[in-house]
Design a protein around this nucleic acid. Sequence first.
RNA 1: GGUGGGUUGGCCGAGAGGCGAGGCAACGGACUGCAAAUCCGUGUACACGGGUUCAAAUCCCGUACCCACCUCCA
Length: 471
Amino acid sequence: MTLRLHDTATREVRDFVPLEEGKAGIYVCGLTVQSEPHVGHVRSAVNFDVLRRWLTANGYDVHFIRNVTDIDDKILAKAAEQGRPWYNLAFAMHAELTTALASINVLPPTYEPGATGTVPEMIELISILIERGHAYPAADGSGDVYFDVRSWPSYGELTRQGIDDMEPATDADPRGKRDPRDFALWKGYKPSEPESAAWPSPWGKGRPGWHIECSAMASKYLGPAFDIHGGGVDLRFPHHENEQAQSRAAGLPFASYWLHNAWITTAGEKMSKSLGNSLLVPEVLKRVRGIELRFYMVSAHYRSHVEFSFEALDEAAVGFRRIENFLERAATSLGGEVPTGGMLCSEFIEAMDDDLGTPAAVAAIHDVVREGNKLLTEGGDADALRGNAASVRAMLDVLGLDPADPGWTTTGGADDEKLRGAVDVLITALLEDRATARADKDWARADAIRDRIKAAGIEIEDTPSGPKWSI
RNA sequence: GGUGGGUUGGCCGAGAGGCGAGGCAACGGACUGCAAAUCCGUGUACACGGGUUCAAAUCCCGUACCCACCUCCA
């Protein structure tokens, strides 16, 4: 069985055939760093992180490029509003994004290029488009350069739309355009904008249009043709349509597969800052741990719309703890760590190969956990338990959810460790009292101690090897 | 107007012609001093109306409602 992926261009799930055996080049449209990332943004990152991990697990040498758009209309507008330099806003939000992604164990990409660092490549690409008759400098002296959609017969093929059905592009003053659907490749400098946001070009001082950056960055870091291009559904049109048109018009074959992840919404609505701060990643992480948030996102298929709710999030967290508990109990029983490099069960592999069927993959993990719990209850077969637990750990690892992954431990500080040690001393003392009471069959006193500990938010569990506490 | 997606049990969330994915919650049983954890068991779910078929949540036709994109967007 080979990996099959849903390709937006063909609207079907088809076999993944890399351009080069054993290698995979992936380009994902990252964020415009204009504000703090919310859970919707990180869902996209998690989805493509899972794709990357699955390809890696299958022996692919993955080259993963995720860009940041660090110059655009919104960044300029917001920075002006906040009275700070645009590059400071972009830089600060980029840092926030990096922190948010690290907190849910999204692997750093092979490289994370920014638009501002790829301007010469964009200018080169625009020049080629003009030479080939697919782009033109605006006739109104604005310094804008537009892509000529009428010159490219297959324009609209990615999203199956005819040019005549499209609404006009509003990304620039239409005066200089030959067709209202033409989109800006280069935006001439306006005196109302900071000079620091302008670069020299053959068409005068200006800054890049939105779409051209991705064509330039993808071809620079992945070559003229590459395997997979990903992003959120909203990017299909115009962004990806335009990227493909301008790249191919310039003679670049571009992406073989287009993958798009669905939204995470709240109250049926797309996330936006107007919905309040509660869905910013740091806010959500006050309620659940990063690993639990990630589990919540991975439990739904990447092409399914998720209606975010704290209830569902809490429930997912409970479900994940069940898996985590099993690994802890297995480790204790095995007298050490659960080994890495376990076998992936066939249901899991099948699910993942079928367009990254993470919900079925998670179900497969639950099945193995149940088997393992049975082995723990029955005692005895340590080899079977070891294989079982290692399998669970390996499957979690593919999803970026291995609790022992160092990616998770960095989030807890030294203070947490100290606090935990202190609590352990106190709880252990109380548990000794309780043990004495139980030995005396003084159940009322034993339960009173347990209730008191529970009131502090700590659960007590009696195991064959003695009582255990957990928060 | 154009393009695409959706509606599944108390809740979340898969599946895509025939055996009830899985989780959470609930109930019963085992275990336990009682719990917790764990295991076992318990469910007449597929928006509505027709149709095709031996068989439909799944295919077809129609209806309703919801959502996304159509040049700011994960």
